[in-house]
């Protein structure tokens, strides 16, 4: 579905002037892949809400499965199909002038996955905390996700924005992630990649720590 909406726009953007020396596509695509992965992983908790009500969550909690693998598994489960979709988009874009660097993209996906684990675990905690109050989950998820995305330069380059936005973007782990993905999708590996990896690892560590704390609180 995403592809269907995306396709017509592609044709139009091919001839457009390039950002920062790269082709529009080469610049834009990594952002799209990050964005759909974000949407997916940030919704990890929404499925959980249902399972909290039926009892399947309780059943899994009663097994010896470790809490962190439970969360990692769930985050990656939401992440994987969306990343596949992103890759599909990338492949479709090849005829339009997108240059595909498989190894770099693979590394990019690994970093994205690590980030996704963190975000998924946070979403998971959010669902646990907002148990029986679904609107809280969606409210918080939406109010956090959009500013974070805009402040990361996913859609438009942040360099064009006012100074405060640039400063704010420095504190946004997504910024580093998006920059890393752009660097990798362009077929290069450098400082951005490293920073992206650090941001992803920190997000994962924080997410899992928060998640494990939340998960071991009382459940009904």
């Amino acid at each position: 579905m995403f592809l269907g909406l995306f396709g017509p726009l592609l044709g139009a953007s091919v001839g457009a002037p390039a950002f920062g020396g790269q082709s529009t596509l080469q610049w834009f695509l990594p952002g799209v892949v990050v964005m759909i992965a974000l949407f997916g992983t940030s919704m990890t908790g929404s499925n959980l809400q249902y399972e909290l009500m039926t009892g399947s969550y309780e059943r899994i909690l009663a097994t010896p499965l470790s809490r962190s693998s439970l969360m990692i598994g769930r985050a990656l489960k939401e992440w994987a199909p969306l990343v596949l979709q992103g890759l599909l988009i990338a492949l479709v874009c090849i005829p339009f002038g997108f240059v595909f660097h498989p190894l770099h993209v693979l590394l990019g996906l690994v970093i994205l996955g690590i980030f996704g684990i963190g975000l998924g675990a946070l979403s998971y905690s959010l669902a646990l905390v907002s148990q029986n109050k679904e609107w809280i989950f969606w409210g918080v998820q939406q109010t956090l996700l959009f500013p974070l995305m805009i402040l990361s330069g996913i859609m438009l380059p942040i360099e064009a924005g006012p100074a405060w936005m640039k400063t704010a973007s420095l504190f946004n782990p997504l910024t580093y992630l998006v920059n890393a993905e752009r660097e990798l999708f362009a077929g290069t590996i450098g400082g951005h990649t490293l920073w992206g990896l650090v941001a992803a690892a920190v997000t994962a560590a924080v997410g899992l720590a928060v998640g494990i704390r939340t998960i071991s609180r009382d459940i009904r």
């Binding site: 249902y50 399972e51 009500m53 039926t54 009892g55 399947s56 309780e58 059943r59 009663a62 097994t63 010896p64």
Partner: peptide, 16 residues
């Protein structure tokens, strides 16, 4: 404890 016991809760355990 969890490794040594089985638990069938009050709700339905199967994921829908």
């Amino acid at each position: 404890v969890r490794a040594r016991i089985g638990y069938i809760g009050q709700g339905n355990g199967g994921g829908h």
